[in-house]
Each structure stands twice: as structure tokens, then as C-alpha cells.
Design a binder for these strands. Structure first.
Length: 891
RNA sequence: GGGCAGUUAGCUCAGUUGGUAGAGCGCCACGCUUACACCGUGGAUGUCAGAGGUUCGAGCCCUCUACUGCCCACCA
């Protein structure tokens, strides 16, 4: 494929839609996204967080693509074998919920009515349909990911990897089965992990219920509860052992109201005497704390709930009622029976299932668990000793705090969609067989062939995600990819999945590969709307990335997200910011258009070094470009992409376009072709280099513009990242800034004095050492300040001159400038203006004098700071003197 | 209850080791100067949340307070 560019005249405005698809196809077909394995070079590797197939593309995707692609492109340009490995996630429970709804809509059938196989067939069909959509969307954003290695967490290779990992943990005794209190989601009818539980504040009531003491008429123990509907499952009442109020009652038997069952009054450390009445009903089947108390006191466990959170047969007269309906009835009956002492309004946190958005029900169930301590310990060490670094650093604490208090991980889910638990039970001998095979012929213990059945559960989706850094590279096979690309370099993701995902990857990476899966974890913020609110459909504040791409271009979206972001900080996105970025793209388009319109087609490529410089402005812009290169490189190394982007924006717009291009117009107009060409060379060289620096931020635009300019190599995406080869000429920078000061001063004075004519006369009285500078830059001043060419007078500092009376005067560090405006100038206005300036200058002088009069400053501050302060004072004094003299002249 | 961020110009945000406060948008005034009105030139606007402290010097370091946001947590 040849370069997809037509060297026709560029349009007046940049149209991203024309460009972006064209260049993406070109890059992709050229194979630039696929790294070449080179054993002599260390690769740079980033494994993409796999998006859910279910999800429509949102700004969070746009943000991670912007960041990861920028890093990827940067490393690629640095010449490293660069792998950004893409993929998608089966997202077990999320997908299952989506498909359930879909099937309900289509066929009015539940997944259970439909059956496992039919349901899974439907999911796979759906996957086939939508799998490609996310990829296309990522491509639209410019993701330069290696699609030849595209992976899916449920494809055949990953399925095998999961089984191998499971079996290994199983054989090592790190996966076990146990009945514990778990978080049951009555919405999706599965167990979920602690991490999938979300606490929501809710206004409810605290009911005070009295439990009669057996055999003692009119004596009660009053308990406070938020969940009266579970009282049919009560198997004790507990108080604090330190609570004197109940000391003599401990050991007595209570009668459970409404039920009549006898339960003991026990003392347990877990009870807080200060809360409520100090007595708590113990329901080991439906509360985590009660479960623990129950274990300690060997209390029976009574489960009163069905899977859908209606009461079961143990609920007596409430059986069949939903838990909240049962609550109402129980309370009413308690009240009727005289058991309800009082009821207080009470606000507390209720655990909700994140995915199904219903309150979870703690239940005792048998599940598969991962024994986490042996995995967590080395994963914690890796963070302590810095083998894994966090950017920003504070997230290291988030990680270690959690890891230090980690609990065993419940990994089985009562779902259809996911990796099936590779374990068979034997009803004959009770043995469990874990196998990598699709099916099992006979129990490995007793040999039974007809009493065996596979565990119907699937694995927590994060089990397969946790293996992503190596399963994508071919593990458990010893592939070339695995040997070369593992461990990765950077893992880039959101802080919301540090525990879900990052922690599990580190644990699994160390356990299965013996090495941390990545050196750096970069955490980005969340994308919010312009008011800082989370974008959501219900709020109607969603900015759809594809719509923004269509309107402003992918580059504009990327640039906005990158420059609006600091690591770990939320990004507020607004349409005005998008417009700014689009304008920036247009600015560069037009700068390039201007340069090429001057006729640069036959120019050969030249690197932007001082060798090219003919003029002061050349030396200035090239030196500034070199400084920029150093700064941008340093910032990207530090993951400060936002700062780097802003630097590029400022340089290109405020320095290159506003000053350098304007200055260069003088030479572009020269009748001497050599002069014209020397200007063109610098324009092209600096712009070409800047486009390289900008490429990771705005890949499409820069690639297009680069091809319009003289260049070497076949594409910008693989052009070398610039490295400065010489020292910037700081003297030239200072000199040019002195010229800028004079030009700005004249412009300002003209504007303030409301000068009508475009061209004015000017007299420059330079300081001795600046005379040559201003004489040399006379043309620049004439053009950029709007001075009449024949009426610019640069005085000889040696000669005494009479300053013109009817003139505005401008005092800069390098010169005093007079604009003789004759009748146009109102002297009163000029005197007032000078008065203001004198006032300001005097303040500066006073400030400097005070600082330097302070002996402790002079003694203790570093010499260079004191010297700088002295210089500043001297120059302010001189300025003040000049202004005062001028005012005297005018009075 | 514990922890972590944030509080800088009307708005959105920068501010690298402490050394005279910045950008974009918006606003005001000019302006079609042979790239760009998605533009140019000029201008106005800040007790850097508050109070202490360290220092010759603090937006940056320390302490406390206030408000905002997020994370973690089995007081029923």
C-alpha cells in the first residue's frame, strides 16, 4: 500500500473525518502495530485491559486508549519492540444479566426455563455478533494495538489456561470447598465476592423487641434489630461479657417470640454493650457477625430464606413471603403480641449486589474458595520492595492496605456464562476429581462411572482476568511470546479495579510465572462531565465518544483527554474543551498549509539543528525546539502526559505560529531564492520535529501533515523519537526575547493610545550592548510591531539625543522606545499612563530594596539568588529612572 | 469509624527539587496584515479555602480547622 495521501492543495480547514480512517488502514496494513521480536532488545509491553463485549464504548475507554496508545506510540518511536496486546472480556455476570434481559424481551423466558445449553448458545451467538464492534470502535480512536494477538478471556486457549491454573491451585491445596456465610444475590441467584458488594445508606428502623425469659413471668431481654424478618432463624441472644446489666442473666433460656422456640442467652466479645440495648439476636444463617458468634458457641444454623429471598418453610406462617413483606408482617405481629417495645428511625448501610442492584442476603452455602494468604504474601512483598511501582504513588498504600487484610476469595458462581469449574463429584464415594478433560469417564477414587457429575458452577470472571498478562501470551505453553514479552512494562487502568484485577494479576503472575506481571501500574482517573458529575444515562450528561469523534475528530478527543489529565485525577470533559483541541488541530493544519503553499515540495529533509540557522529567529526557534524535546521526553518518562501535551500546545501555537511563522514571512517574501529557502528549511525542520513529538497525542493529524513536509522514512508512526544533539543557544533565546519585548511594547502602546494608523514611526534608544541586536532585527520590528519602514530610527547610544515631546514612550530592559504620534497623542493621557507605570516600577524597586536590605536574606540565601535579586533591582531602578525622566520631559 | 485526594482569575484546570502567580474558555477593545474568524493584536480579573508554624523567603514543607469527592469497614 502506498502512502494514502494526495498531494493536492490542502483545504482551508482541517477535516478529521477525511483523514483518520485512511491513515488507520494504512498503519494496520503496513503491520506497524506488530512488534518484531529482537532478542538483542528489551521489549516494551502493555497488556490492554480487556473491555466487556457487552459494553458500548464510553469515555472511560477513550481515556485508556488515549493514554495507552500515546505510551505505545512513544515507545515504538523510540525504536523498542513495542507490544500493546488487545482483547475482550467475557464478563461473566455482566453479560449474563444483559442476555437474560434480552431473552426475556424476545421470548418471555427465564434462563432457567431456557436451560443451560440453549442459553449458552444464545450468548455465543450474541458474542459473535458484537465481538467486532468494540474493536472497530477502538480503531476509530486510533488504537495502535497488535490485532494479530487479539485475545478473548473465553476463547479456546484461555479456557485451557484457566483449567490448568485451577487444577494447579487445586492440587496445591490452594482451592478448597467450604460452607461459609457468603453474599447471596437474590437478583441474579448467585454468590458474589465481597468486592461485588456495595454499601448503600438507607433510612430504615431499629426495632426493639423483647424476648421473654423462660420460667420468669414478666421478665424480658430486649434486643434491637434492623432485620426482624430473620428472627425465625434466631438461635441465641448475645450480650457483651463486660455488660453488668446482663451478667446475672447469661446462661438463661429465652423464648423466641412468635415462634415459641427456646434459645440461650450467651455472652460474646463481638457484641458492643453501648449499642441499642446491649443485647443482640443471633441469626447465624443470615448475618456474618452472627455466623461467627454461632461458630464460637456451636449454635445451630437455621436458614429461613429461599434463593429469591422469600421465606422458606422455616419461616413458619411467613413462608412464601418476600423478605420485606415478611418484615412488615413480623413487626405487626410482634406489636400485636406485645413484644414490640419501640421503634426508632435508623439510617444505616445496607449491602447491595452491585450488578443486580438488590440487597444481598447473607446465607450459608458451600462454595469454592481460593486460600489467599500464600498468594498475597509475595504479592505484598513485590509492592514493598518496588518490583511493582504505582503511579501515582499513593495507590501503593491502597493496594497494600487491602492486601494486608485480604480474605479468602469465593470463586464459584451459580451462573451459566463463564469458565466451568473443572471438578466432578462422585455420589458414590464423595470424592472430587479435578481434570483438564472436557468430560470425566469415572471417579478417580472409586471408579464409579454413573454416579459422577460435574460441578454446575462457573468461575468468578476475575479468575480468568487475573491470568490475562500471561494467558494472552500463550501460557501454559512455553511460547516464544511468553518468553520474550513477559513480564510486561506498564499496566494502565482505573483505580476502581485495583483489588478486583490488579491485585489478582500480581498474585497469579508471581504464583504461576514466578515474576511480577508488570513493573508499573498507572492509574488514571474517571471521566466526568464538566461539572464533575459521573456521566450516566439517567442524568442525561453522557458525552458519547463516537459522537465527539464524528464532530471534532479522534485527535481532538484524545488531546482533550490527555491534556485534561494528571495521573490518578478525574478528567472533566466538556464540549468547549473539545472545541479547543479541534482548533489546535486546525491551527497546525493551517500552519502546515501555509508553509507548503510557499513551495516546499522539492526541499530535502533536514534535521532541526543550529546548522540550519541563518537568523536570530532561527537560532531562537531551533533552540526552543530542542528545549521542548528535552522537556516533553522527560515528562512522558514521568507519565506526565498532560503536561507534555500542554507544552506542545504552547510551543506550537504561541511560539512557532505566533512568532516564528510571522517572522519568517519576511524571508519567504524575499526575491532571493536562497533566503527564501533557508527560511523554508527551518520552518519545515522545526515543524517536522514537533509533529514527531506530538504524534503520540494526535496520531492522525500529525501523520497526515508529516507527509506534506519533507521527511525521511515511510511513516511518522515509525519515525525516530527526537533526541537533542546539541546545546540550545540560550543567548539567542534571551536576545530574541528582548526583541519580543520591544515589539509587544509598541503594540501595547499603539493599542492603549488608540492609534488609528496601522504603521507608526518609532525611535529606539537602545542600551549600548543591545544596539547591534535592534539594528539587526529592524525588519522584524517593522513587520511585527507595525512600524513604518522608513520611519524607524535606531539611535546610537553614544550620541545624546533629544527625546521627542509628542511621543509615547516604552521602557524595556533593552531599550526605550518612543512613538512620536504628534497631534494624535493626548499628552495628559500619556502623563497619566506614565504615572501608573512609575508607580508600579517604584513598588518593584522598593520591594527589591527591602529584600536586599534584609541582612539575613543576603547572608543566607544562595549567592545566585541574591545576585539575581540585585540584577532585578538594578534593572527596575533604571526603568524607574527612565520613566521619571520621561515624565519630567513632558511636564 | 478509618484512610486517600481536592480547595489557585467568572468557568475548567496547570504550576517539575520552596526564589517576583500561568493557560484555555468566557469577558472588553481593536482588527479581513498575501495560513488559519476553528483567526490575529491588546486589555481587565487572583488576601493561591481559613488559622498557626518552619524558613532570609511558602501556592509548594509541617500542624490544625472547614467544606467537597472517593475508597475501605460485620455495631445488630
Amino acid at each position: 500500500m502506498s502512502e494514502p495521501i494526495e498531494k493536492k492543495e490542502m483545504d482551508k480547514a482541517y477535516n478529521p473525518a477525511d483523514n483518520e480512517a485512511r491513515w488507520y488502514a494504512f498503519w494496520n496494513e503496513k503491520g506497524y502495530f506488530t512488534p518484531k521480536i529482537d532478542q538483542n532488545q528489551k521489549p516494551w509491553v502493555c497488556i490492554m485491559p480487556p473491555p466487556n463485549v457487552t459494553g458500548a464504548l464510553h469515555q472511560g475507554h477513550a481515556l485508556f486508549v488515549s493514554i495507552e496508545d500515546a505510551l505505545t506510540r512513544w515507545h515504538r518511536m523510540k525504536g523498542e519492540p513495542t507490544l500493546w496486546l488487545p482483547g475482550t472480556d467475557h464478563a461473566s455476570i455482566s453479560t449474563e444479566v444483559v442476555i437474560e434481559k434480552l431473552i426475556w424481551k424476545e421470548q418471555k423466558k427465564s434462563k432457567n426455563e431456557m436451560g443451560r445449553e440453549a442459553f449458552l448458545a444464545r450468548v455465543w451467538a450474541w458474542m459473535d455478533e458484537y465481538q467486532g464492534v468494540i474493536r472497530q470502535q477502538l480503531e476509530k480512536l486510533g488504537a495502535s494495538a497488535d490485532w494479530t494477538r487479539d485475545a478473548f478471556t473465553m476463547d479456546a486457549k484461555r479456557q485451557r489456561a484457566v483449567k490448568v491454573a485451577f487444577k494447579r491451585l487445586f492440587d496445591e491445596g490452594l482451592i478448597y470447598r467450604a460452607a461459609r456465610i457468603v453474599n447471596w444475590c437474590p437478583g441474579s441467584l448467585t454468590v458474589i465476592s465481597d468486592l461485588e458488594v456495595e454499601m448503600k445508606e438507607e433510612v430504615s428502623s431499629l426495632w426493639y423487641v423483647r424476648y421473654p425469659i423462660k420460667g420468669e413471668a414478666d421478665r424480658y431481654v430486649t434486643v434491637a434489630t434492623t432485620r426482624p424478618e430473620t428472627m425465625m432463624g434466631d438461635t441465641a441472644v448475645a450480650v457483651s461479657p463486660k455488660d453488668a446489666r446482663y451478667a446475672d442473666l447469661v446462661g438463661k433460656t429465652l423464648i423466641l417470640p412468635l415462634v415459641g422456640r427456646e434459645i440461650p442467652l450467651i455472652a460474646d466479645e463481638g457484641v458492643e454493650a453501648e449499642f441499642g440495648t446491649g443485647a443482640v439476636k443471633v441469626t447465624p444463617g443470615h448475618d456474618p457477625l452472627d455466623f461467627e458468634i454461632g461458630q464460637r458457641h456451636k449454635l445451630p444454623i437455621i436458614n429461613v430464606m429461599n434463593p429469591n429471598a422469600s421465606l422458606n418453610e422455616n419461616g413458619g406462617q411467613y413462608a412464601g413471603l418476600d423478605r420485606f413483606e415478611a418484615r412488615k408482617r413480623v413487626v405487626a405481629d410482634l406489636e400485636a403480641g406485645g413484644y414490640l417495645v419501640k421503634m426508632e428511625p435508623y439510617t444505616h448501610n445496607v449491602p447491595y449486589s452491585e450488578k443486580a442492584d438488590v440487597p444481598i442476603e447473607p446465607l450459608v452455602k458451600e462454595q469454592w474458595w481460593v486460600k489467599i494468604a500464600p498468594l498475597a504474601e509475595p504479592a505484598l512483598q513485590a509492592a514493598y520492595d518496588g518490583r511493582v511501582k504505582f503511579v501515582p504513588d499513593r495507590f501503593k498504600k491502597t493496594y497494600t492496605d487491602w492486601m494486608e487484610n485480604i480474605h479468602d476469595w469465593a470463586i464459584s458462581r451459580q451462573l451459566f456464562w463463564g469458565h466451568r469449574v473443572p471438578v466432578w463429584f462422585c455420589d458414590n464415594c464423595g470424592h472430587t476429581t479435578c481434570t483438564l478433560e472436557e468430560s470425566l469417564d469415572k471417579c478417580e477414587s472409586c471408579g464409579s462411572t454413573d454416579k459422577i457429575w460435574q460441578d454446575p458452577d462457573v468461575l468468578d470472571t476475575w479468575f480468568s482476568s487475573g491470568m490475562w498478562p500471561f494467558s494472552t501470551l500463550g501460557w501454559p505453553d512455553q511460547t516464544e511470546d511468553l518468553a520474550y514479552f513477559y513480564p510486561g512494562s506498564v499496566l494502565e487502568t482505573g483505580p476502581d479495579i485495583i483489588f478486583f484485577w490488579v491485585a489478582r494479576m500480581i498474585m497469579f503472575g508471581i504464583h504461576f510465572m514466578g515474576e511480577v506481571p508488570f513493573q508499573t501500574v498507572y492509574l488514571h482517573g474517571l471521566v466526568k462531565d464538566e461539572k464533575g458529575q459521573k456521566m450516566s444515562k439517567s442524568k442525561g450528561n453522557v458525552i458519547d465518544p463516537l459522537e465527539t469523534v464524528a464532530e471534532f475528530g479522534s485527535d481532538a478527543l484524545r488531546f482533550t483527554l490527555l491534556t485534561g489529565s494528571t495521573p490518578g485525577v478525574d478528567v472533566k470533559l466538556s464540549l468547549t474543551k473539545m472545541a479547543d483541541s479541534r482548533n489546535f488541530a486546525n491551527k497546525l493544519w493551517n500552519a502546515t498549509r501555509f508553509i507548503t503553499l510557499s513551495g516546499t515540495d522539492n526541499l530535502s529533509y533536514q534535521p532541526p539543528t543550529l546548522e540550519l540557522a541563518e537568523t536570530l529567529a532561527d537560532r531562537w526557534i531551533i533552540s526552543r525546539y530542542q528545549q521542548l524535546t528535552t522537556d516533553v521526553t522527560r515528562l512522558i518518562e514521568q507519565f506526565q502526559l498532560g503536561e507534555a501535551g500542554r507544552l506542545l500546545y504552547d510551543f506550537l501555537w504561541s511560539e512557532f505560529c505566533d512568532w516564528y511563522i510571522e517572522v519568517s514571512k519576511l524571508r519567504l517574501n524575499s526575491p532571493d531564492p536562497a533566503i527564501k529557502q533557508s527560511a523554508q528549511q527551518v520552518l519545515c525542520a522545526v515543524l517536522e520535529g514537533s509533529l514527531r513529538l506530538l504524534h503520540p497525542f494526535m496520531p492522525f493529524l500529525t501523520e497526515e501533515l508529516w507527509h506534506h513536509l519533507p521527511h525521511q522514512g515511510e511513516a511518522l508512526i515509525v519515525a525516530p523519537w527526537p533526541t537533542p544533539t546539541e546545546q540550545p543557544d540560550t543567548e539567542a533565546i534571551a536576545k530574541f526575547e528582548a526583541v519580543q519585548a520591544v515589539i509587544k511594547g509598541i503594540r501595547n502602546a499603539k493599542s492603549e493610545a488608540k492609534v488609528e494608523s496601522k504603521r507608526v514611526a518609532a525611535i529606539i534608544a537602545p542600551h549600548t550592548e543591545y544596539r547591534a541586536l535592534f539594528v539587526g532585527e529592524a525588519d522584524t520590528i517593522i513587520r511585527l510591531a507595525g512600524v513604518e519602514a522608513t520611519k524607524l530610527d535606531i539611535l546610537d547610544p553614544a550620541a545624546t539625543i533629544e527625546a521627542p515631546r509628542q511621543a509615547v514612550s516604552i521602557v524595556t530592559d533593552g531599550a526605550t522606545v518612543y512613538l512620536p504620534l504628534a497631534d494624535m497623542l493626548d499628552l495628559d493621557v500619556e502623563r497619566t499612563r506614565l504615572g501608573r507605570e512609575i508607580e508600579a516600577a517604584r513598588k518593584e524597586v522598593e520591594k527589591g530594596e527591602n529584600t536586599l536590605a534584609n541582612s539575613s536574606f543576603v547572608d543566607r540565601a544562595p549567592a545566585n539568588v541574591v545576585a539575581k535579586e540585585r540584577e532585578r533591582l538594578a534593572s527596575n531602578r533604571e526603568r524607574l529612572t527612565k520613566l521619571e525622566e520621561r515624565l519630567k520631559d513632558l511636564s
